[in-house]
């Protein structure tokens, strides 16, 4: 700070307290509503202090949408997205920075193109891709007219129809969300800053490419991996549109989707207390991650948008 200005400092504290109230007020009301009975929550005005029914409401929410299963699904999907994306990104970043091969620039641009074209803009075609991942092979067969060729050669008529349906599966929830190159670029930028001497030394010692990757590059990337993993975990846990479309089976939905099913609509009973307790439960894991790993989280956030 350049000069002391007690008045301005006080104003700043007040502004920040205002910011905290802004952040916490909705959460506080959610907590109060989650701890009331359905009659209390409909009182006007609503009580400003929590009641004693939070656990009860949570139990109702738990049994209403089978939260146990949904939380397990959310963990599997979030961790699957995190591990999958970090793994394929590390490998491809290694390939495009440490190897010289003919199609390197092409590979680089193919990955580059996928950057920043959000999944949301190709909702319908991606849904088709997940509903039948074998579709491209089918087109190839149709395009080359393999069926006709076979008929011509052997005289038999066959019908080839391939199907690989990924709806209501974990891979269907995970794979489309891994299909973007942001993490690859983060690792690429980092690999470019790693001193060349490390590889030269490793080579003198007779290390192979993969050995260099495992014993030198991977340990060096540790902090980048942790920071990015937090962001990806939050991203995976908080996904909404994909799980909503891909999971017609209620047991395959995620916790966030479960909350959506708890929202009272005009034709249902106004069980806002149950909805709020469910909402607080579903936001708990990512909130804990952010609070406990704040330093890493901030770093991951700033890094991953570079």
């Amino acid at each position: 700070m350049v000069e002391r200005s007690p008045i301005l400092t006080t104003i700043c504290h007040l502004l920040l307290i205002g910011g905290i109230v802004l952040v916490c007020m909705p959460l506080y009301f959610a907590f109060i509503a989650g701890s009331l009975t359905m009659e209390q929550v409909q009182q006007v005005p609503m009580p400003w202090l929590p009641g004693g029914h939070f656990i009860e409401n949570l139990a109702t929410a738990w049994s209403k949408v089978d939260f146990g299963q949904l939380l397990v699904n959310s963990f599997i999907v979030a961790i699957g997205i995190t591990v999958g994306k970090v793994a394929i990104s590390l490998l491809s970043a290694f390939a495009i920075t440490y190897f010289r091969f003919r199609f390197r620039i092409l590979a680089f641009w193919l990955i580059f193109m996928s950057l920043m074209l959000p999944v949301e803009v190709r909702i319908v075609p991606t849904y088709e891709a997940v509903a039948n991942a074998a579709l491209p092979i089918q087109w190839l067969i149709d395009l080359l007219n393999l069926q006709g060729l076979w008929e011509w050669i052997s005289g038999d008529r066959i019908e080839i129809s391939l199907e690989w349906n990924m709806l209501n599966t974990y891979q269907g929830l995970i794979l489309p969300l891994i299909a973007s190159a942001s993490a690859t670029f983060l690792f690429r930028q980092f690999f470019l800053t790693v001193p060349d001497e490390l590889l030269e030394a490793a080579r003198l010692d007779g290390a192979s490419a993969m050995r260099f990757f495992w014993t030198i590059l991977l340990p060096l990337s540790r902090s980048n991996i942790i920071a990015l993993s937090i962001i990806l975990f939050l991203y995976g846990w908080n996904q909404y549109l994909w799980p909503l479309l891909f999971t017609t089976d209620k047991d395959m939905a995620t916790a966030v989707i479960g909350v959506k099913h708890l929202i009272p609509r005009s034709d249902t009973e106004p069980a806002w207390n149950v909805a709020m307790s469910g909402a607080l439960l579903a936001m708990l894991p990512p909130v804990v991650v952010v609070l406990v790993m704040q330093r890493w989280f901030v770093r991951g956030l700033v890094d991953s948008s570079k």
Partner: peptide, 19 residues
């Protein structure tokens, strides 16, 4: 505290504000 909403899913933020 100010960073907290980043961890909250948009749909959950939406549900709370709708309430």
């Amino acid at each position: 505290v100010i960073l907290l909403p980043y961890a909250i899913a948009p749909v959950i933020a939406g549900v709370i504000w709708a309430f």
